[in-house]
Simulated assay, not measured.
Amino acid sequence: MVDRDHSAFPARFWFDRFKAALPRGSTILDLGCGGGEPIARYLIDQGFHLTGIDKDAAMITLARTRFPRETWIHADMRTVRIEAQFEGVIAWNSLTQLSRADQAAMAERAAHWLKPGGRLLFSAEADRDWDSSGYRRGSLYHADLGPADYSAAIAARGLIEMAHVAEDPACNGAGVWLARKP
Rank of each mutant, 00 (worst) to 15 (best):
M1D: 01
M1W: 08
V2P: 04
D3G: 09
R4N: 07
R4W: 12
H6N: 11
A8E: 09
A8H: 07
A8D: 03
A11E: 14
A11M: 07
F13D: 11
W14A: 00
F15G: 01
A20K: 13
A21R: 03
A21Y: 09
P23G: 07
R24G: 02
G25N: 09
S26Y: 06
S26D: 08
T27C: 06
T27D: 11
T27H: 07
T27F: 05
D30F: 03
L31M: 11
P38W: 11
P38L: 09
P38M: 08
I39F: 05
A40P: 04
I44H: 05
I44R: 05
D45R: 06
G47K: 10
F48Y: 15
L50F: 07
T51C: 14
I53S: 00
D54N: 02
K55I: 08
K55F: 12
D56I: 11
D56G: 02
A58F: 07
M59C: 10
M59A: 10
M59T: 00
I60E: 04
I60L: 03
A63N: 00
A63C: 03
R66G: 04
E70A: 03
W72Q: 00
W72I: 05
I73A: 02
H74Y: 08
A75I: 12
D76E: 11
D76V: 08
D76I: 07
R78I: 07
R78Q: 11
V80Y: 04
R81C: 11
I82M: 08
I82H: 01
I82D: 01
A84E: 13
A84M: 11
F86C: 04
G88P: 01
I90V: 15
W92D: 01
W92E: 00
N93A: 09
T96F: 13
T96D: 14
L98R: 04
R100W: 09
A101E: 13
D102C: 08
Q103T: 02
A105F: 07
M106Q: 11
M106E: 08
E108P: 00
E108M: 10
A111Y: 03
A111Q: 06
H112Y: 13
L114Q: 00
L114C: 06
K115T: 10
P116D: 02
G117A: 05
L120R: 01
L120S: 05
L121C: 04
L121H: 05
F122I: 13
S123K: 06
A124K: 04
A126K: 09
D127P: 01
D129C: 13
D129P: 00
D131A: 14
S132N: 15
S133F: 15
S133C: 14
R136V: 06
R137F: 15
S139H: 15
Y141T: 08
H142I: 15
A143L: 15
D144H: 15
L145E: 11
G146S: 14
G146E: 14
G146F: 14
P147L: 04
A152N: 10
A153P: 03
A155P: 05
R157S: 12
R157W: 03
L159D: 04
I160Q: 12
E161Y: 00
E161M: 06
V165S: 02
A166N: 08
A166M: 03
E167G: 05
E167Y: 01
P169C: 09
P169D: 14
C171P: 03
C171N: 14
G173Q: 12
G173A: 09
G175R: 00
V176P: 09
W177N: 04
A179Y: 03
R180Q: 13
